[in-house]
Amino acid sequence: MFKLKNKINELESIIEEYQNQLFSFAFFRVGSYYIAQDIVQDVFLKFFQDKKNYNHIKNMKTYLLKSVSNACIDYKRKYGKIKIVPIDFINNDVADDDEEQKCVAEFLRIEDLLNELPAEQSDVIKLKFVDGLNFVETAEILNVSVNTVKSRYRYGIDKLRQTNKIKENYYE
C-alpha cells in the first residue's frame, strides 16, 4: 500500500514536471485540447500501469514525448490526420476559450506552413521549433540517427525557403 502511495506521489511529480510540454506536444499534433488531454492522460495512465519503477528510464522527457508521439500517431491513424473538435465540445475546465482559440489558430497556421513538406521533414522541424528539442532528442524520439535528423531538417528548411514560407535559413 505504501509502495503504491509512493508510486502515485512519484507519478504526480512527473506529471507536474512534464504535463505542459507533453500537452503542447500532443496539441500541435492533433489540434484539439480535448483530444490532446485525453492522449496525455492515457500516456500517463499506461506509464503508471506498465512501470514497476521509473529508475531504468534514462531520459524521462524523451521517453514520455516518444510515448505521446506514438499515441498521436495511433490517434491519427485511427481517426484521420487532423480532427478539430468544435469549441462547444471542449471541456470548460480545460482552458479559457480565448487561449484555446488562439492556440487552435496557431496550430492551423503551423500546419499550413508545413503541409507541403513530407511528414518526416515536417516532424523534425516541428520537434525543433514547436517543441524546442535538440537534434539528439529528436533522433531519440524518431528512432533515427542524428545525421538523418539533420539532413531531414536541412531538406525541410530548404523547401520552406524555396516556397517563400520562411525568410531565413534556420540552419544551426
Binding site: F28, Y33, Q41, N91, D93
Partner: peptide, 18 residues
Amino acid sequence: EIIPKIKPSAPLSLKKNV
C-alpha cells in the same frame, strides 16, 4: 514563422483526471 506565438498549458484537470 515556425515557432508558435502561443503554446497551450496543460489543463488543471489533467493531473487530477489521471
